[in-house]
Design a protein around this nucleic acid. Structure first.
Lengths: 213, 213
DNA sequence: GGCTCAATTATACGCTTGCATAATTACAAC
DNA sequence: GTTGTAATTATGCAAGCGTATAATTGAGCC
């Protein structure tokens, strides 16, 4: 009865790193940062804990990469399907709807974001990722807003465009947050309607009509 | 050279509990939940760790009480100074301004909130506190909105009032979040102006004028 | 001034954590 | 088939964690 050593398959560095990152995100989403221990991550990725050290020189490095992946995925999910429309107004409406609809609005996603925030505040590199993700999203939103306004024959100056983008982004973020943190407080399509009305009111555009087409 | 035992003063249960709660909030705000260990909390409160167990049967109980205190303080800070005006419009403007101004908007405060969120998701009692805090705030906001609209000769029905409150709350929360998480991204009074304009646009009321008086 | 008792300190236990290092093994090259 | 090597497992360690419990001590009361 020799202690049977565990069998394993060799895999490429990329696929293993990705698997570890995914396992990390799963665990943080489910149990908070507390639950994402090195051992739990390894188990979830079906690997022994030593391997983590082989791919990431420290746990913080893994967490950092997981954060990057999560934020990139969030932006990607939000903008998926936005480009396929002709009118800027329609694209804007689609973006707003996507921002307050699953899978973007989701308890795990918000929990993940919150779990990372304190790491973000203490690590310079994560702070940079955070700032860039935020600004990227807001810039794309601002360009869409400007396009939609120009389409309607209005031309905001730079300062106005910036302020409008910040305000619309705030509506979206606020609803994202509340929808994710307190899902049972809202009806099925309630957030969608509110988001379209509110952003429409701020921009003085009819987004609700545009969303239907 | 006998190991000198530490001197101490006896204090009332209330004051000690409060000191421990404050120390907990300080630490979570500064270093995240990770840094708020029993030993660190005790040191910050100038007490030995055994005393924590004397007042709280478990660490989670202390964290729970700290969360309650933080949320109550946040609502209180936001509504302080709102009641002193005659016109509902002015009170609403004051509330909006207070919501996006320090000390409510603050990196530590947002960090605290984020640090608690994952505890909230796993503990039923904390979830109840969270839901109630949110609904309390939104209900007060809704009443203020209804009063301001009636003052302007408009009478929203219940559904409209609810949706308007959710939307305005989202703007406020979104700006609170972004202002706290990314302070350097905004000018000094920028958030105030944006908040007033955006909420004003949603409600079709002139809040900026009302805020000046 | 001594008694009493809760408030406080002191100490220690068992567990988990992140990290290090040595031993194995799958797989490709020749 | 042998060999080389990087991928993977196995094992261990020191530190920190929350919790339990026993020993002290301040302070009000008679």
């Amino acid at each position: 009865m020799t202690g049977e050593r565990r069998k394993f398959r060799r895999e490429g560095a990329d696929s293993r790193r990705q698997a570890l990152v995914l396992a990390t995100l799963d665990l943080i989403a489910e149990q908070g940062v507390r639950g994402a221990t090195v051992r739990a991550i390894a188990e979830r990725a079906d690997v022994t804990q030593g391997l983590i050290r082989h791919y990431f020189s420290t746990k913080d490095e893994l967490v950092q990469e997981a954060y990057l992946a999560h934020m990139a995925g969030l932006t990607e999910q939000t903008f998926a399907g936005v480009v396929e429309r002709e009118a800027a107004l329609g694209r804007l409406a689609a973006l707003v709807v996507a921002s307050v609809t699953p899978p973007v609005v989701d308890a795990a996603s918000v929990g993940l974001w919150a779990g990372f925030l304190n790491h973000v505040r203490q690590d310079a590199r994560m702070r940079a990722v955070h700032a860039q993700t935020y600004h990227d999203f807001r810039d794309r939103l601002e360009r869409l807003i400007v396009a939609a306004l120009e389409e309607a024959g209005r031309a905001p100056d730079a300062g106005q465009a910036r302020r409008l983008a910040i305000a619309c982004n705030a509506v979206i973020d606020g609803l994202w947050l509340e929808g994710g943190a307190l899902p049972e407080a809202f009806g099925p399509d309630e957030l969608t309607g509110i988001a379209l009305t509110a952003v429409g009111a701020i921009l003085q555009l009819d987004l609700e009509e545009a969303a239907k087409t």
